[in-house]
Every structure is written in structure tokens, then in C-alpha cells.
Computed example of a mutant assay.
Amino acid sequence: MSRLKSTQTFKIQFLCPKYWGIWLGFLLLRLISFLPRRLKFFTGKKIGQLLYYIAPSRKSLARKNLQLSFPEKNKNQIENILKEHFESLGISLIETTINLWGSHRHPQKKPIKMPFFTFHGLENLQQYPSQGLLLVVPHFTTIETTGLMLSHIMPFRPIYRKHDNPLMEYLITKSRTLVLDSGQSVAPLANSDTRAMIRALKDHENIMILPDQRYRAKGNIKVPFFGVDAPSNPGICKLAKLGNAKVLPVFTKRNGQHYEMTILPGLDNFPSGDDYSDILRLHQLYEAEIKTNPAQYLWTHNRWNLKKGRDF
């Protein structure tokens, strides 16, 4: 497996004043990483509660998304989910510190333990030894931990969107380059490099892909998500076909400080040749999981294009 080089090379320009704000935030995360686990999560929850009050535009967007997705819920129910969601966002920052500086980064120094992880459906990963796997992970706030959990049980390549800011690109790819139990580093793949993804799948590598966000580029299709048409990317159908890959949905739920991952069986007849039906099928799986765990889905993303502006 190849490594990302250019995006993980520190550049002296990153020390310029225009990057100092990013470094300050990075320093705060580093300081938090030294806290005991229980205190880390407490801090993350408080950060999320602060975000609830200082990010009104994102709070408004998340509220609209929740109201659209759960029209049967009353105002108080929506507001309770919204508050829990922002707490979950804060905790996701803590999960980033664990990914960046956890013991898995130095497996040769300290054996990696998994007392906070529970896995369901591991047997589904063993059913397709002659195919690459497309592990479909919707945008829950547990994304960072999902990657970490998968790194304990299998080699895989996470897909990511390149950041416009070069320092953020450096930090994100550094975070998402995972160290397996064997000590091997596995680098992410840019979502713009379709050829590399297909090549990896044909080589029987596994890919973690997050295809559920709004997609407005050429080739998008509108597919209902919670009953409302959403601009969607049918690219996963092409990947599965050209890479001869099996598609397995993966969901991770945070329960306090414990995480529970469920790996569903590989989807039969996917792709079917009908992109609309295939994406609708995935959306229905996402919806079923979100309904059991609504606060941890990423509602601050403008999934339905409800207003103009950049994504969170």
C-alpha cells in the first residue's frame, strides 16, 4: 500500500502568521489529548455545548434538517436532539485527538487494547476473500473512531476530500493515515482520484467511503433521503462495478465512552445497473440507522441544499 507523501510533508510556510489560528486550535487539541479519558469526554461535551451557543448559523441549519427529517417530532423533541448533536460534535473533536496521538500510533512501544470497542458482523468481512470491499460509512460524528476501529481488524484505505487550506490538508491526512496493529501505515485516498480507488479495489484492497453528503457536480442524481430529494453521488455504483467490489454498510454508535460497530452483510445485486434504485437502497439503510441514533448524525451539513453557503 502506498503512502501519501506531498500532503504529509511539513512545509516551512506553515509557520507563517496566516496559519497561527489553526496552530492555536491544534495546540489546544494537543493539550486536551493529555487529559484522562473520562475528562477528555467531559471536555468534548462542554465544547459542544459552547458550539451550540456560538454557531447560530450551523445550529439553524441543523434544526431545519432535523425538522425536515422528523416532521412527527415536536419542537421540544427537535431541540433536545439538536443539543445532543452539538455535544456529539464536541466529542468528535476529542476522537480526533485520540486518532492523532493515541497509543495505536506507537504499537511497538505499547500493546494496543480495545476495551472500549464492540464489533458485530465481523464474519461478514470474511465472506469475500477474492474481492476488494467498499465499506460504506455515512457521516456520523463517530467517523474518526470508525476508522480507528476498522484499523484494528483489517487493512483499508479511507477516502477523503482534499482541503483547500494546505495546513489543514496536512493535518487531516496525517490524522487519517492509520497505523495498523502490525505497525503498517495505511494512507488515505483523495476522492478525486477515481483511478487509484479502482486500482486498489482490483488489487483486493479495502476502501472506506463516505458517499452520503450533498453532491452537486456533474452526474449527480436526486434521490429521496427522509422522503425529500437530495443531490446524490452515484459514483459508488461505478466504483463497485469497475473495481469488482462488494459493498458493506458500516455503522458506529457511541455509548458514553464505549463504541459499538455493526458491519452489515454485503449487498446483493449491487450495483444493479439502476443508479437511482441503488442509491435509494443505501439511503434507506442510512435512515434506519439514523432513526435509532439521531443525535450522532451530521446534521450541520447542508444535505438538501436548504440554503446557500459552504459546507461545514
Rank of each mutant, 00 (worst) to 15 (best):
M1I: 03
L4V: 09
K11C: 05
K18S: 10
K18D: 04
F34N: 09
R37P: 01
G48N: 11
Y53F: 13
A55N: 00
P71M: 04
K83F: 05
F86W: 10
F86P: 11
S92F: 07
L100W: 15
H106L: 01
P111F: 03
M114Q: 13
M114F: 12
G121A: 11
S130V: 00
G132C: 05
L133V: 03
V137F: 06
L150T: 04
R161C: 06
K162G: 14
L167H: 02
E169Q: 14
S175F: 00
L180I: 08
G183P: 12
S185R: 14
N191G: 00
A196G: 04
A196Q: 06
M197L: 11
L201K: 02
D203S: 13
H204G: 00
I209G: 06
I209F: 11
I209K: 02
I209V: 15
R216E: 12
A217D: 15
G227M: 09
G227C: 08
I236S: 10
N244Y: 02
V250H: 13
F251K: 09
F251A: 10
Q257M: 15
H258M: 12
H258V: 11
T262E: 13
T262M: 11
G266Y: 03
D268W: 05
D274G: 06
D275I: 08
A288Q: 14
Y297M: 11
N305Q: 14
